[in-house]
């Protein structure tokens, strides 16, 4: 891990990070003409932090508290059994009804689109949302499914040997986004 870090490049720093959250919050309000029937659902784990930040930002702008849920997509993945061990199942907590709501699905990095497909399937098991919109911090390309973000913090073209790592202050680190080159 430490060796990999040596070959990493900072793409977004703490300040960039905050500006992006702020811009996405504004865009959400603008696009939806306010905050009526809006709720946020973050994909475990990074998406949950970002969803909460966006919610806080919207609160500071509009003085409205949007409901925030967390969603774990492990049980909806399309690669079950293809890895050596099963992904850890994290908590899913959507304690509000999403039926007829406009759900802003939030993730940190948009890549192949498969996680989003899984998340949408998972959401459907909780109710019938009026709309699902997608907000991501980084879009790194390489889509394998016809999915696009409604709100993308930053488009970062990457190669397939590269990885994007997002760090959060919630995990005791500095907010930042790193580009990591996979050795070999």
């Amino acid at each position: 891990m430490w060796v990999l870090k040596l070959m990493s490049k900072e793409l977004l720093n703490t300040k960039d990070f905050e500006r992006i959250i702020s811009r996405i919050a504004h865009e959400i309000i603008e696009k939806n003409k306010g905050t009526d029937n809006l709720c946020l659902v973050g994909i475990q784990r990074g998406g949950v932090h970002i969803a909460e930040r966006i919610s806080a930002k919207i609160k500071s702008i509009e003085n409205v508290s949007l409901a925030v849920g967390s969603l774990d997509i492990s049980l909806y993945r399309d690669d079950i059994g293809m890895k050596k061990s099963q992904p850890t199942v994290r908590r899913t907590d959507i304690s509000f009804d999403i039926t007829d709501q406009k759900v802003i699905l939030v993730d940190d990095v948009l890549f192949t689109g498969r996680s989003i497909r899984a998340a949408m399937d998972a959401l459907m098991d909780f109710g019938r949302p009026a709309q699902i919109q997608l907000a991501v911090l980084v879009d790194r390309g390489h889509r394998e499914l016809p999915i696009r973000a409604d709100y993308a913090g930053k488009n970062i073209p990457t190669s397939l040997h590269e990885n994007i790592e997002v760090q959060f202050r919630e995990d005791g680190l500095e907010d930042k986004v790193l580009l990591i080159e996979n050795a070999g």
Partner: peptide, 18 residues
């Protein structure tokens, strides 16, 4: 892991496609 499935069993749709 069972805790997460215990949550699934509390939902209206108690089935996952896993």
């Amino acid at each position: 892991t069972a805790s997460s499935f215990r949550d699934v069993l509390r939902r209206d749709i108690k089935k996952v496609p896993t």
